[in-house]
Amino acid sequence: MPMRRSRIRRAVTAAATNHRIAEAMTRAEPIRLIAEDYVAGETLTDAVATALDRVDKGLEVTLHPLSTEIADPRAAEDTTGSLIGAVEELGSWPELEGHAEVSINLTSLGLRLPGGGPRAALEHAEAVCRAARNHGVLVTVEDEGPEVHPETFEIVTSLLADFPDTGVVVQAARHDSLDQIRELAAPGRRIRLCKGAYSGPAREMVTRPHDVDLRMASCLRALLQSPATAMIATHDPVFVAIAERLIADLGRGPDDTEFQMLQGIRPLEQRRLADIGLKVRVYLPWGREWYRYCVRQLLDRPANLWLFSRSLVVHR
């Protein structure tokens, strides 16, 4: 049965992200209007304008350029150049100083290229991190799934040696999530904890929803009790409330703790947290691949369907 569900999911993913279907959907005005609430635009100019608006409202921002997995070294170099350009643009705005971050996908930097993909991805990530450091912009490396998790974790560990403020993503639903937090937690380290942004085999992932919640609670406590900067990526009211209580009990504040939420999801809650003195960072995806991004968000985490549909009715 799990194998059948996996085959069905792959078929649905292939159909939903088919180039022709995606092109048709991106031209459909109703779809574009809905997507405007969740994506910061198709161009860097759009994304920066959205970022400036959010920072003006007292929020932090993470810009995530939407791109597909690349197929040749030249494309990886082009993507790296585009990321560096985005970093330079963010760094050119005084209003964004100390408030801006970019998140990067290593598969877009060549991770899966044959014959030295991980080495190429590391070199390209280092180039982005150097530019970010020079322009006062932070970087977080995404965890893109079980298929590339070992290589991603190894590259992030290498980056931390020279760029210790590189953000690391820990998926609570992974069996080794607590071990990762204990291994990574150190002063100056930035760890983004989320419940689980992808599905995976039972040998790697906790699958029962109740067990995932228990693991998330354990990871949240371990992270907030650690010396690392805690980046809590959740929209779940239960975990927001747990985190608020732990932050108060442990005496943590905006210098070493932040909430992270997606653009368009629970904006009133983002505002509430910021108004009571907590740091809130809004995740701003941008680019022409916005339709595939939205579809994959729903396919990888079906619970996101509830978040997206609810936010169409009430922005809380």
Rank of each mutant, 00 (worst) to 15 (best):
E151V: 07
D256S: 14
K57S: 13
P65F: 02
H64A: 14
T79I: 07
I31T: 10
P164R: 01
R10P: 07
I104H: 04
I8N: 07
T50M: 12
I21V: 11
M216T: 13
V156I: 06
T45W: 02
H235G: 13
E147L: 14
T234H: 11
A197D: 10
P285K: 05
D46F: 07
A75C: 05
A217K: 07
G136A: 01
W286T: 00
E269P: 03
E154F: 02
L159C: 05
A47E: 04
S309I: 05
Y291W: 13
R192M: 09
T140Q: 11
H64M: 13
T62M: 14
A172D: 08
E258K: 06
D236G: 10
L111T: 03
Q171Y: 08
P209H: 12
A185R: 08
E101K: 02
A161Y: 03
A47N: 05
E269A: 07
R203F: 11
I181P: 07
V12Q: 03
E89W: 02
A120W: 01
G253S: 09
G253V: 00
L66P: 06
L278T: 00
A173C: 14
E23M: 06
T166V: 15
A131L: 03
E36K: 14
L223G: 13
R4I: 04
L159Q: 03
G277F: 06
L298R: 07
A49V: 00
P302R: 02
N105A: 09
T157I: 03
V141F: 05
I276Y: 03
W290P: 08
R27M: 06
I8V: 12
G287R: 04
T207L: 15
E88P: 01
L90M: 03
R112W: 06
I155M: 08
A121C: 09
D275M: 03
R266A: 15
H315A: 11
H19C: 01
E144Y: 00
A233F: 12
A16D: 04
T13L: 15
G117L: 14
A172L: 11
R192W: 10
G264M: 08
Q297K: 15
R27E: 09
P150Y: 05
R27T: 01
V169Q: 11
S199C: 09
V169A: 08
R133F: 03
N134V: 00
E29G: 11
T43M: 10
S82G: 07
T107F: 01
V206S: 08
V148H: 08
I191C: 12
T43E: 02
Q180G: 04
F239A: 05
T50P: 00
P187E: 11
G145D: 06
C219V: 09
P227M: 09
P302S: 03
D256K: 03
A274H: 01
A75E: 13
K279M: 03
F153A: 15
R7M: 12
R281Y: 04
F239K: 04
A86H: 02
E151R: 08
A125I: 04
L223S: 10
Q263Y: 13
V240C: 08
R5E: 09
R174K: 06
A185P: 11
W286S: 09
A120H: 06
G85Y: 01
Q171G: 06
T26P: 03
A100N: 00
M3E: 12
Q180A: 15
L220A: 11
G196W: 05
T234Y: 11
G117C: 14
V141M: 02
I155L: 12
R130L: 13
Q171F: 08
V206Q: 07
A120M: 14
H124M: 09
D236V: 06
